[in-house]
Design a protein around this nucleic acid. Structure first.
Lengths: 127, 127
DNA sequence: TGTTATGCATAGCAGTGCTAGACATTGGAC
DNA sequence: GTCCAATGTCTAGCACTGCTATGCATAACA
């Protein structure tokens, strides 16, 4: 499946935050995890992940630390900060809102709420 | 709720396409419909909708026609083309895919599939 | 010794979405 | 009569930023 740029951009941050909420992690493994979670549909490059990680760091949503596990390569581990957790919740709420909105049209649900009804009951035949 | 730019950008096209799939419509009414569907959470400006509509027109996803209903203002009505319907289906599939992916992390679902398990079973304590 | 997997980094520009500003008509309030 | 709000549409131009392309390094393995 070929995803639009917009969608990739919009989902990148919440996805990384969500993955880090599972526990600290490092770039290369995050890449693998994204692939796994999306069952191969999302194909992120490292070139797009690292800048994002740096951005999240600048924004204070994650903390980074170099570490060299026993007998392994040097890696930079990232961990969610409190602000990061809050940001994740916020993003999640936003996604839920948008998804709910889209579903309302897609599934033609009856609509609660004030009901502006801009069309005053008029209906047009499609196409 | 304050939405990120990315998310607004990513949802704009599918939302407009979805609204037009309900039947032909014109700019001002689409704005109202968006407000209604999102129950006031989405506050689009006309300045962002019209360029989008023009773009969709250029891409051949919608057709436009000036019309002046009996005793009403002149309006430009937009209608989905076949390509538009196809694009809507495509976008919908993409959203579903992403949403599914995000839910997997958010809800910590057990994961089906090949199971790359890049961490070889290791678990870290979260921050 | 060559290749693949692991692991990280960033300069710089292409691409584009929106803000700001403009214009016109209708109807109701005062 | 006048004014304001709602209705209705349009576009130039630039600010912003996300990614592509590229570079570097080590380990394992064939």
């Amino acid at each position: 499946m070929q995803l639009t740029k917009d969608l990739v951009a919009a989902s990148a941050t919440p996805l990384v935050l969500a993955i880090l909420s599972e526990g600290e992690n490092y770039g290369y493994a995050i890449l693998k995890r994204v692939n796994e979670l999306s069952q191969g549909e999302l194909e992120w490059t490292d070139g797009m992940l690292y800048p994002l990680l740096h951005r999240l760091d600048r924004l204070g949503l994650v903390e980074a630390e170099w570490r060299t596990p026993e007998g392994q390569r040097r890696r930079r581990y990232y961990r969610l900060t409190n602000d990061g957790h809050a940001a994740l919740d916020e993003q999640r709420a936003q996604w839920t809102m948008i998804t709910t909105t889209l579903k309302r049209v897609w599934e033609d649900l009856p609509m609660p709420g004030p009901g502006l009804d801009p069309m005053a009951g008029a209906r047009w035949e499609a196409s």
